[in-house]
């Protein structure tokens, strides 16, 4: 099996060696937030704190924007990125829900009703059909 087999799963980035290399500095920054002092320093001046890490400007902006989907595309991984949510004092559900583009209450309701169904969410082409593409 190659990683190409995963490419037709919609809305999913595989965190492999290539992504890990791309996200190295971004993920390092995230791990630094496992320390209370670092969280305080980050919150006091996000731009200055981010400047200390070997990240691209695109990655820094994605963090400042809290654009987690962009962070994922730029080599981040959710288990690293969740440290940003922790620093912001939001829950994992809030953070994950925001990645779907749904309203917070709608996402919570969807989960209470049993979550996003698997039907229609297995293949990219199912999504393309739905969007009329």
């Amino acid at each position: 099996m190659s990683n190409a087999d995963f490419a037709d799963i919609p809305g999913t980035v595989l965190f492999d060696a290539q992504q890990a290399r791309r996200g190295y500095g971004l993920n390092q920054f995230c791990m630094s937030l496992m320390n209370a002092d670092n969280r305080k320093r980050f919150k006091a001046d996000e731009v200055a704190y981010l400047a200390d890490w070997p990240m691209s400007d695109e990655q820094r902006q994605a963090v400042l924007d809290r654009d987690m989907n962009r962070c994922l595309a730029l080599g981040g991984n959710v288990y690293f990125l969740v440290k940003i949510a922790a620093t912001d004092g939001i829950s994992v559900q809030q953070m994950v829900g925001r990645m779907t583009g749904m309203d917070e209450a709608d996402y919570r309701d969807m989960m209470l009703r049993g979550g996003r169904p698997i039907e229609g969410n297995r293949y990219r082409h199912e999504w393309l059909q739905r969007s009329g593409g």
Binding site: I9, P10, G11, T12, V13, M68, N69, L72, V78, V82, V92, V96, G97, M99, T100, G101, Y107, M110, M111, G114, G115, R116, P117, I118, N121
Partner: peptide
């Protein structure tokens, strides 16, 4: 068990699986 924590497919649950 089933869960997806990323992107627009997040929240996926598959009780049959």
């Amino acid at each position: 068990m089933s869960h997806q924590l990323q992107g627009p497919r997040a929240g996926l649950i598959n009780p049959v699986f």
